[in-house]
Design a protein around this nucleic acid. Structure first.
Ligand code: SF4
Ligand code: SF4
Lengths: 148, 148
DNA sequence: CTAATATATGTATAAAAAATACATGTATTA
DNA sequence: TAATACATGTATTTTTTATACATATATTAG
């Protein structure tokens, strides 16, 4: 059967953003190069470069060019709110496009979806990067395994 | 700039499912053909046929073949839970694919996302089809406008 | 000073997902 | 029995997302 089976999901772009923050959070003491992070996770370095660049524009990381350059967190782990990160990475946080739907003026679904999305984001707003790193030691070990 | 701008969203497939239910809900007194519904919303009849078929398999609508056939709700509007509908239409309700991520065993993000998704679905679980049809009169008028 | 290395940035391509089109079968009834 | 509506599988197109490629710019070790 060739049915198209759908799924609600975050883009990898956003997940990669969080992965970068997790990496930098476990290596706060130094700057890390994008290639190092890409190697750790075994993902596209080019793609990750843009992710990192965007994290920079959003103020989450600061970067140093040139030899021995790299990236580091621009804020403390405790200060980085996950909901805010997702909001700034997933530009278009509307669940459906009602643009060309003729019942939009009377549709009760839009309200329900907005409330649901609000609840979703509210949960994420309750987490900081530090909260996601409770198992910091294990995290560091896993990551270093990937780099090596 | 050719950046890829992402978005978390429900598929149209799921939205179409809800649209069908809304249509049938406002025309409870008779069976409606798929072509009629497709015309109302100005969307692909073939696609909608599969949506409807699936709604049937999930028990939300019952269909009648042959001439003068069509589809109708198999349950009362008050009995059709929106969360349940979304769950049965969006097969893969996991937000990210952690399959090939090396930090999965120590990642705190998965838990946060699961909690967020749970909150999202819980809100939808609080709605029935009837709740989405508060403006039933206006809804019917808009829909008939599309069919004509 | 300069070669090496890292980020910055835009474009092009590939891959994946989703939507739509097409084709054909089956059931119902006017 | 012809018309019509659902059923079902395949193919194609479109859209989105991810990745690759190319080149510019900044920094510093040596
Ligand atoms: S949410 Fe309502 S208005 Fe928006 S596209 Fe879906 S049915 Fe139409
Ligand atoms: S949620 Fe955590 S484990 Fe899953 S892919 Fe993202 S970073 Fe990896």
């Amino acid at each position: 059967m060739g049915v198209c089976w759908p799924g609600m999901h975050l883009t990898r772009y956003t997940d990669y953003s969080l992965r970068v923050l997790l990496y930098l959070g476990t290596h706060e003491e130094r700057v890390c190069s994008v290639s190092e992070i890409a190697r750790a996770y075994d993902i596209s370095q080019n793609h990750l470069m843009k992710v990192v660049h965007n994290l920079g524009r959003a103020g989450y990381v600061s970067s140093v060019r040139g030899r021995l350059g790299g990236v580091r967190l621009a804020q403390a782990c405790e200060e980085i709110n996950i909901g805010a990160v997702v909001r700034s990475m997933e530009e278009d946080l509307q669940l459906v496009d009602c643009g060309s739907c003729l019942i939009a003026p009377a549709c009760g679904l839009t309200g329900a979806l907005n409330k649901a999305l609000y609840a979703f984001m509210t949960v994420l707003d309750g987490y900081t990067l530090a909260d996601l790193m409770k198992q910091r030691g294990k995290l560091a070990r896993l990551l270093d395994l990937g780099v090596a």
